[in-house]
Design a protein around this nucleic acid. Structure first.
Length: 334
DNA sequence: TAATTATGACGAC
DNA sequence: TCGTCCTAATTAC
């Protein structure tokens, strides 16, 4: 269940491993057979992430748009070249073998390599415990002996080069577009801090929020206001700003809106580097490491309903907002 | 075996 | 506000 950071990470994988290569496209599941045929045999020339959407550009002005939705995921197999940023982050966080590849698998971006290092496999998207277990058994010599591997589960589209295989499963959107259609979709999306890191985006976000009567807790999830924030980052950003989720956008002090934008930029960068939605970055180094290692201790309020607030001890509240679960501290975020 | 859950988003009322 | 779609793991029965 990826938010913006995962999509940026996946896009980097495509930049590193696919851009410049001729791609064989297919749809093992069959549901994307027509689209795959349009892409098949073309050279990939671009990979872009905007919020939670990814656009892969192919020669001949053909684009593939993918949105993972709640449980979509990409699985990479083969001789994967890790993006420098991702590789170094992994090296920092987990155990590494002699080749420097990553052995431990911190969810939600499960990055798993067999110890031989040859037949690597990585999955970015929804947590896939089965897949992890499989990888562990593969370490002991089963499976992944052939390339490309047998598709696992419902694979909507498979993109293949000589050395890399990428399988897409469970996307909410997977379609072939022309450049004008891509432009139309991107134009509707709100700013993404990694796309335009300058003051223009901050200005755009701030002015939109400051005009709306909509609760800030809904605005942060609105992809047309700001792209890439999902349910986890929403709850955490609001807590970090000590902001009541029900506050109408127009009533949030301007400086606080700007702080929200800058904080989102910061958390997104951390997420892209580490592959985890760490939102308690202000900890001392030791506590930070412990928090990273634990699934439960990584957030201020997300999934902590009924537990004491880490700051004031008040029980964290769970309520529905925008048909999604919203966690917040009624005392800190009064 | 069925219900439940998940870090989305859309369209019909 | 609801139903619907995409998938797979976990939990309940």
């Amino acid at each position: 269940m990826p938010e913006g950071h995962s999509v940026h990470r996946i896009t980097r994988q495509f930049e590193r491993n696919f851009v410049g290569h001729v791609v064989h496209a297919s749809s093992p599941q069959g549901r994307f057979a027509v689209g795959a045929a349009e892409l098949d045999g073309r050279r990939m020339i671009d990979a872009r992430a905007v919020g939670k959407q990814m656009f892969l550009g192919f020669e001949g002005d053909v684009w593939l748009r993918v949105h993972l939705g709640m449980y979509g995921a990409w699985d990479f197999a083969g001789d994967i070249l890790m993006d420098a940023t991702i590789a170094s982050a992994n090296g920092r966080m987990g155990q590494t073998n002699q080749r420097g590849t990553f052995l431990d698998a911190p969810n939600p971006d499960a990055v798993v390599f067999d110890s031989a290092g040859e037949n690597s496999l990585t999955s970015i998207g929804a947590p896939r415990t089965t897949r992890l277990r499989m990888s562990e058994s593969e370490k002991e010599g089963n499976g992944l002996e052939t390339f490309p591997p047998e598709p696992i589960g419902q694979v909507r589209v498979r993109l293949l080069t000589d050395t890399i295989c990428a399988d897409l499963r469970g996307p909410t959107a997977c379609e072939v577009l022309d450049p004008a259609q891509v432009e139309a979709i991107v134009a509707k999306l709100g700013p993404d801090p990694l796309l335009d890191p300058g003051a223009v985006a901050e200005e755009r976000f701030t002015s939109v929020v400051r005009k709306k009567p909509t609760p800030i807790g809904l605005l942060l999830m609105d992809q047309n206001v700001v792209a890439g924030i999902g349910n986890v980052y929403r709850a955490e950003l609001l807590f970090r700003a000590r902001l009541n989720p029900h506050t109408p956008g127009k009533q949030v002090p301007e400086e606080l809106v700007r702080e929200l934008w800058r904080d989102w930029s910061k958390l997104l960068r951390i997420g892209v580097e580490t592959g985890q939605m760490m939102t308690m970055d202000d900890l001392d180094p030791e506590a930070y490491r412990a928090a990273m290692a634990s699934r439960e201790d990584r957030h201020w309020v997300y999934k902590r309903e009924g537990l004491p607030c880490r700051v004031c001890g008040t029980h964290i509240v769970l309520e529905e907002m925008g048909a999604r679960k919203l966690y917040w501290c009624p005392s800190c975020q009064a």
